Amino acid sequence: MFPQNNQSHSVSRTTRASSWPFYTIVFSLLAPVLASILVFHLDSFDPAPFPNHELTHHLPEPSMKNGRLLQGSEFLGVGLLQGPEDIAYDSKSGVIYTTCADGWIKRVTVNDSVSDAVVENWVNTGGRPLGVVLGRNSDVIVADAYKGLLKISENGEVEMLTDEAEGIKFKITDGVDIADDGTIYFTDASHKYNLHDFMWDILEGKPHGRLLSYDPATKETKILVSDLYFANGLAISPDQECLIYCETAMRRCKRYYIRGNRRGQTEKFVDMPGIPDNIHYDGDGHFWIASATEITLFWKMAFRYPVIRKVAGIILKHIGELETNKNGGVFVVDLKGKLISQYHDPRLMLITSGVKIGTHLYCGSIIYPHIIRLNLAKYPAVHVTK
C-alpha cells in the first residue's frame, strides 16, 4: 500500500508542476489582451463616423502620372529649411518665401543651380507659420498656427490682423490667399485642437474647422463656412468668382462662391485619391493640390470605422507616432475640378505644398529639411496605360 501512495503523490506533484508552465503561458497571452480591452473601454476618446456618403463612390484617377518624383529631383536649401510647409514666389525679385517649423519665414533665391541658392532668415513669428501669400503692398500675409493671421511689412514688421472669430480663438490658422479687392481668405483647421495635437482632430472625426475672411479696410473677421473637417489649403480662382478649399479629413476640395449670384454657396469641386493640403493656382488654368499621403489601407479602414481610429488614438497616446503615410506628392486639377496629372513617389510623405514656377515644381513639407525641386520639362507626367 505504501509504495502505491508514494507513487500517487509523486504523480500528483508532477501533474501540478507540469501545469504551471501552461498557466503561465495562458496568463502571459491573456493579460495583454485583457489590459487592452480594459484600456479601450475606459479611454474617453470617442471618434465619430465620417459622412463618407457625401464622397464620390469611385474616386477619380488622373490620366497622367510621374510616380517617381524623387528621380531627377533637386533639393533646395538643404539643412537650412526646417519643415518648409508652404511656398510663395515673388517673380519680381526671384525670391521664394517659405514657412518653417522653427518659426522662421525664410527667403530663398531661385537660381538655375540649387547649389547657388541663398537662404536668408527673414522674420521669425515666434509661432509656427503655415500658409503664406504675397500681399498687395510689398507685404507678406501669413497664417500662423499659433499666432493667427499676420501681416509682415517689407521691413519685417509683424502685425497680428486677427486671431479669433465670433469670440472663438483660432487653434490652427492654416491656409491663406488674397482676392483682387484686398479681402484675405483663410482657414482655421480646428478651433478645438492646436497644431501639436492635429492628429487628434483627424482621428476624432468631428468638424471643428472654419473658412473665414478678413477685410483690411474694416478689420472685420467673418466666418463663411463652419463645421468643416480640418479645413486646410485654399486658393482663389482666376476669375475671382470663387475659391477652392480643402477638407483634409474628408479627402476632398470644395468650391465657395465669393462673388456673383451664387455668392455664399458651396459645392463639390473634387474628391481626392489622396489626403489634400495646400492649394496653389499656377496662372495657367490649373490648381496644384498637395497630397500628404495616398489613402493607405490604414486610412481606408480608419475613415470607415471609428473603432479603428479609437485604437489608433490609444496607440498614439500610450506608444507613439503611427507610421501610416506614403506616396505623397501633388495633384494637378483643372478649373472644372477634373484631375489631370499626379506627381508622387512611394518614398515621399507629408508633402504640404506644390508650386509651379516656370518649368519647375517646388514642393514643401512639414518634415524634410529642404524644398524639393523637379524640372517638369525633363521629368513630365506621362499617360498611364490601363
Rank of each mutant, 00 (worst) to 15 (best):
P49C: 00
R373F: 02
D112R: 14
G126N: 04
V123A: 07
V108H: 03
F22G: 06
T56R: 11
S213V: 05
H344T: 14
L211H: 10
A381Q: 01
W122V: 03
G205N: 12
I357C: 13
D112W: 12
D163H: 12
N278S: 07
Y362W: 13
K317Q: 11
K317R: 12
S115K: 15
D46S: 15
S341P: 11
L30P: 01
G329F: 04
H360Y: 15
G135W: 06
K169E: 13
M160V: 15
E220P: 06
D86L: 12
D197Q: 09
P62T: 05
W299E: 07
G283V: 04
K92N: 14
Y305I: 03
I223K: 04
Q4P: 00
G175Y: 00
L149I: 04
D215F: 01
D46K: 13
D144V: 09
P369T: 01
Y343N: 02
E164L: 08
D43I: 07
V118N: 15
G285R: 10
Y281D: 10
P216G: 02
R259M: 09
F50N: 10
P276R: 12
R259D: 11
P60K: 04
H360M: 10
Y257R: 07
L69E: 06
G72Q: 02
L29C: 15
F75V: 07
G364V: 10
N6Y: 11
I37L: 10
N155A: 13
P369C: 02
G209C: 01
L76A: 11
W200H: 12
P216T: 00
I372L: 11
I168T: 14
I141E: 04
S12G: 09
W122S: 08
N121A: 13
S291C: 15
R68W: 11
K92Q: 15
M272Q: 08
S28N: 07
V108P: 00
K378C: 03
G209F: 05
G156Q: 08
L339Y: 02
D215C: 06
N327P: 04
I315H: 03
D180G: 09
S36L: 12
F75R: 15
P216Q: 08
W104Q: 05
S153T: 15
L70Y: 01
N155Y: 13
R16P: 02
M349K: 14
E54W: 08
G182V: 00
S138W: 13
E166F: 08
D334F: 01
G167C: 05
S138Q: 15
L30H: 09
Y245C: 07
D201L: 04
I258T: 00
C253D: 04
S115P: 08
A179D: 05
V95S: 09
S63H: 05
D112Q: 14
Y214M: 07
E267R: 03
R262S: 04
A35G: 01
H53M: 06
I314M: 10
D345A: 02
V332R: 15
F331N: 00
P47W: 01
I351P: 01
T296N: 04
L243A: 13
K378T: 06
Q240Y: 11
